Amino acid sequence: MTTNIATTREQSARLLQCGVDPDTADMSWVRGAANVSDGNLSLHPYRRMQRINWQSMRGRSEIAPAWSLSALLGLLPKKIMNGVSRIYTVEIAYSHTFNDAPWTINYEGNGLNKNAHFNGKSPIEACVKAIEWLTANNYKLNQL
């Protein structure tokens, strides 16, 4: 079993398409000018790595944001409102029942659309799916 400590480049691109601010990324993917691989994960925040890239590499490195699980969880609103009076709270769960996607992010409450349940093979993927749904439905993310 492989584990990821941050979003993949593909997941990061999906978050950027949703309008997630790259400055909220607490890690970054870095690929130097001569590097032909997918790049290396840096534990430095995206904003800092961009500054280092321009100061020392003169912009020759490709820097992409990466979010850790804790950063993603920090972006998820703990409660969302549907209309004026209905409040739905977030729940994060793991279930052996769904072997292909055991991690779930749920927004629970009476009357909420069934699309508010997001499964993934990892908790990071479940968070990315939840953020995609939240932004598509005009819910605001938390600001870090």
Rank of each mutant, 00 (worst) to 15 (best):
M1E: 09
T2Q: 04
T7L: 03
E10W: 03
Q17N: 13
D23K: 04
D23L: 06
D23R: 00
A25H: 01
A25L: 04
D26M: 02
W29L: 01
R31I: 11
N35H: 05
D38V: 11
L41M: 03
S42Q: 08
S42W: 13
P45K: 01
P45M: 01
R47T: 13
M49H: 12
M49N: 12
I52H: 09
G59Y: 07
S61Y: 15
S61K: 09
I63F: 15
A64D: 01
A64C: 05
P65T: 13
A66Q: 03
S70F: 13
L75Q: 12
L76G: 15
K78L: 10
K79G: 06
I80K: 07
M81Y: 00
N82D: 08
G83L: 03
S85N: 07
R86W: 07
I87R: 07
V90Q: 14
E91N: 11
I92V: 07
I92P: 02
A93F: 05
Y94T: 02
N99R: 13
N99G: 00
D100Q: 06
P102R: 02
W103Q: 04
E108I: 04
G111E: 04
L112N: 05
N113L: 10
K114P: 08
A116E: 11
H117M: 00
F118M: 06
F118R: 00
F118G: 07
N119L: 10
G120A: 00
E125W: 06
A126F: 03
A126V: 09
V128P: 11
K129V: 07
E132C: 01
T135S: 03
N138L: 05
K140E: 15
L141Q: 08
